[in-house]
């Protein structure tokens, strides 16, 4: 077990190294510059430009720049080209909101996706399965930004419910409970939109494994013992279909963070997706590289956790 964790961590470090190289060269080799002024602006003296380049190591060759960015990333000295603030501080102030959003979203995906998958798998081949599969594909095919705007139109215009940001703006709450409910509400809407694709993917995997499990001999035994269909489904079949539920945790994360770029922009949600979007617009190399690094680390961590959980739940699995 510990040998497995150590080997996985070592592999993760190698992957993180590759990822940092890819992301660094993607952002630096493309045209354009991060300078906050136009190239031909006569008001900026050569000296100012030189100082700026020096400060952010832009006068160095790319390989040195990469080494310096990595050094600064690990010593915590990496500074954003945009506002000269510590990149880690910028990411850390967004991290809680991002984790809350993605965690809620994964929770919604797993629970509803599992239910939909069981339903479709149980009635495989019937019209109920067809309807379940149709909804799954409908959820994947829904453009997130479109459904967000439709929700905005309905909720804001028709119902007058505030949805932007992490809490209602300019309202002092009489009690902490009302404030908490308000924050949960603001989290729930973007999380649900973000979860739609996850629900679909999850339900497809679960449907496939349910169909497989339901063909097993022990299911026939359980049924012939006269157990209730619910017991057979949820105690016998579901237990053996647990793999997609758990591996879903690791798999859904990158897709969620991708989707969050658009959803966070629309709902003015202060997460890492929006930070990344802004950093792309500003060509803020240090922030982009650090952000990709942190996101990749989160994804790898998610994969490791799901593998460990898998081994903990399923006694047939040995981590070697």
């Amino acid at each position: 077990m510990s040998a497995f964790i150590i080997r996985r961590l070592a592999l993760s470090l190698v992957l993180l190294f590759i990822i940092s190289i890819i992301s660094f060269f993607i952002v630096t080799l493309t045209p354009g510059s991060p300078y906050p002024w136009g190239d031909l602006n006569p008001k900026i003296s050569a000296e100012v430009k030189a100082n700026f380049r020096k400060k952010f190591h832009l006068d160095q060759p790319l390989t040195t720049q990469y080494a310096l960015i990595m050094r600064d990333l690990f010593t915590g000295n990496l500074r954003s080209i945009k506002d000269d603030r510590s990149v880690m501080a910028r990411i850390m102030e967004r991290l809680p909101a991002t984790l809350a959003l993605n965690f809620t979203s994964i929770l919604i995906s797993l629970s509803f996706g599992t239910l939909l998958g069981i339903y479709a798998g149980r009635y495989a081949g019937t019209w109920r399965d067809l309807a379940g599969s149709f909804f799954a594909f409908l959820f994947i095919a829904l453009p997130g930004f479109w459904i967000s705007y439709l929700l905005l139109i309905v909720l804001v215009k028709e119902c007058g419910v505030p949805v932007l940001g992490t809490q209602s703006y300019g309202i002092a709450f009489a009690n902490p409970l009302a404030s908490l409910l308000d924050q949960i509400w603001h989290l729930l809407i973007p999380a649900t939109v973000l979860a739609l694709g996850g629900i679909a993917v999850q339900s497809r995997y679960l449907r496939a494994t349910m169909i497989e499990s339901l063909r097993e001999d022990y299911i026939r035994t359980a049924r012939s013992k006269g157990l209730a269909e619910e017991v057979v489904l949820y105690k016998h079949a579901l237990r053996n279909s647990v793999r997609p539920i758990i591996s879903g945790i690791g798999m859904l994360l990158p897709a969620m963070i991708s989707g969050a770029v658009i959803i966070e922009t629309i709902f003015a949600y202060p997460g890492m997706g929006r930070l990344g979007y802004e950093a792309v617009l500003e060509r803020d190399y240090p922030t982009l590289v650090a952000l990709n690094f942190v996101v990749a680390a989160l994804v790898l961590l998610g994969n490791l956790i799901s593998d460990l959980l898998y081994a903990a739940v399923d006694p047939r699995v040995r981590l070697e």
Partner: peptide, 24 residues
């Protein structure tokens, strides 16, 4: 396959957005 694993850790849409935004 390790390279594929590394690429899978990137949020795909964010990667596309980054490259397209930077390339024009």
């Amino acid at each position: 396959m390790r390279s594929v694993d590394a690429l899978l850790c990137f949020p795909t849409f964010f990667l596309i957005l980054t490259v397209v935004a930077l390339l024009g």
